[in-house]
Every structure is written in C-alpha cells, then in structure tokens.
Computed example of a mutant assay.
Amino acid sequence: MMKLTGFADEISPDLMQQIAVCKGEQIQHIEFRSVWNTNVLKLKDGELLAVKAALESNQMLVSAIGSPIGKIGILDDFEDHLLALERAFYVAKLFGTKFIRMFSFILPPGDELSKHREEVMHRIKRMVKRAEEENVILLLENESGMYGDTPDRCLDVLETCASLNLRQAFDPGNFLQSGVNSTVEAFHTLKPYISYIHVKDVTLNNGKEVPAGKGDGHLIELLGQLQSLRYDGFLSLEPHLVYSGMYPDHTPVELFEIASQALKGLLKTIDEDWI
C-alpha cells in the first residue's frame, strides 16, 4: 500500500495550518522542508522540538527531511556544507525518519559536465560514507541545473557511489523540465534505485506545473509501474502549483487540496489503496 506525504510548506509557513490541511486530506506524513519561513536545517533545537510535539499531538509523522543538501555550486565551499549534513542527520533521527533528500550540486552554466564529474562524485561519496555510518538513507533528487538532471547522470551517480544508503527520489516533473521527454523510460533506467517518489506533473509545451495526470509526466502509467512492483513507499506531493502562475485565483491551501485530490483520483483509477 502506497503512503501519501507532501511538502506541507507549500500550504503555508504556519505549522498548524500545514497540519490542518494535511489532516483534512487524510495525509498522515509530511516531508519536512520548512516552517515559519525557516528551512528545516536552520531551525533551532527548541523550534524543532515544538514542531515534533505538534506533529505527535496530531498523530502525524515525518516521511523525509526535505533538506537542501547538495543544492550549492560545485565550486562553493564543501567543508561548511558538511556541517549542514550533520545537522540533517540530527534532525532525521529526532523525527524518526531514515530519509534525507539531497541534490547533486549546481554546475556553472556553459561548463562541460565532464569538467566537474570527479568533484561531484568525490563530494557525494563523502556524504554517503557518513550516511552509512549514521544508518541514514540519502535520497538523490533529480533537478535541472544539477549534475543529476537526466536519468543517465543520476544513474552515473548511483552506480559510482554504489551504496544502499544512496537511493533515488524520482521526480517526473523535474525530468520534464530538464528536457527529458519520457518519464517512463527514465523510470525504467533508475528503477533498481528508486525508493521515493515526488509527485509533480508538468506540461511540455510551457514547462509549467499542473495537477498530477494533467501534464506530460505519464503519472498514471508510472503509478501502474509502481503498483506492479508492489511499491509500498511514499508518494510525496510537491505540486508547485502556487509557483506555476497558472492558478492566480486559488489560494495555496486550495491548490494543495487540488493536487492531493488529483493524485488520489489517479490511485483510484488503478484501484490502488493508500494510507
């Protein structure tokens, strides 16, 4: 049975509104990225404990830490960034999740990718080694502008670093925005490594985010593929409808609810239950 979660900070910076909307949509988890306009890794210990208490009192859990680890330039200082990774380990353990979202470093525009491959692998291997020591799983999210923006380069990272503590967070919308035309082919390329799904759909003609099933991401086919694999992991709503500019007459709360209901509609179509 697949599990629903989401980036609740797309609803509101207010924690209690995030919780209320998720509960209204029968979503029992959040992918914790920010609250009170502060990134999760920047929250103080007391603030983290307040979030934890509020989630627990509402019977909600954290599916993953939506950290910005790896979302810096490949030429930026890495040693300081490793301190943020240590903070991510602490936060993950505090909230009882084994997953931390990460990226594969922003490359300078126009540079040959091969010029930076060795440094990308060096950095990610160091992060993975620490994840192995901490018994935490780093989830590599594909995103445009990063080394891992295409299925082949994500596969390159996963194969080169070769660890059970590094898995793929598969984002079909991000692949489309990176010029990958077939999310289904991308899925099959990365299938052995996929342990988490970001639910984002995009229309190819303008690159804008739309509710799941309304774009060119072949979401229903991807869900069918997951169903055939008996996938029982997370489907994390990251709809970005607020940022697409296509729904100016809707509030963030309404857009998150629209995104949630669109995903549930696809799951009903393939006769898949969820929690």
Rank of each mutant, 00 (worst) to 15 (best):
F103N: 02
R117I: 01
V51M: 02
V40T: 10
I72T: 13
E56G: 09
P68A: 11
L41G: 02
L49D: 13
K42Y: 07
F103E: 01
Y90N: 03
I69H: 07
S57H: 12
E47F: 02
H81E: 14
D76R: 01
P68V: 12
F99A: 03
G73I: 10
K44P: 00
A64L: 08
I74Y: 07
G110N: 07
E119N: 09
K93F: 05
L107H: 03
F99C: 01
L48D: 02
D77L: 13
Q59T: 01
D76S: 14
S114F: 01
L43E: 03
L48F: 00
F95A: 08
L113A: 12
L85E: 12
V91D: 04
D45N: 09
A54N: 00
K52G: 02
I69R: 06
M60Y: 09
P68K: 11
K93E: 13
R101P: 10
G73S: 15
E119S: 06
A92E: 05
G110Q: 07
G66A: 15
F95R: 03
E47L: 03
L49H: 11
A50I: 00
M102T: 13
D77G: 14
P68I: 10
L113N: 04
V40L: 06
A53L: 09
D111F: 06
K71D: 14
G66W: 05
I65D: 05
L75F: 04
E119R: 13
G96M: 08
S67C: 04
L61K: 15
L85S: 06
G96W: 03
G96S: 08
L113W: 04
F78Q: 08
V91P: 02
F103Y: 12
A88C: 10
N58P: 05
G96E: 12
L94C: 04
R101I: 03
F78M: 08
F95M: 11
L61Q: 14
F105H: 11
G66C: 08
S114K: 11
E86D: 15
I100D: 07
I72N: 08
Q59S: 13
L41S: 04
L41Q: 11
K44F: 05
L94N: 05
D76N: 14
A88G: 13
G96R: 03
L61C: 06
G96N: 12
A50Q: 14
E118W: 00
L48K: 11
D45V: 06
F95C: 07
F99W: 13
S63L: 05
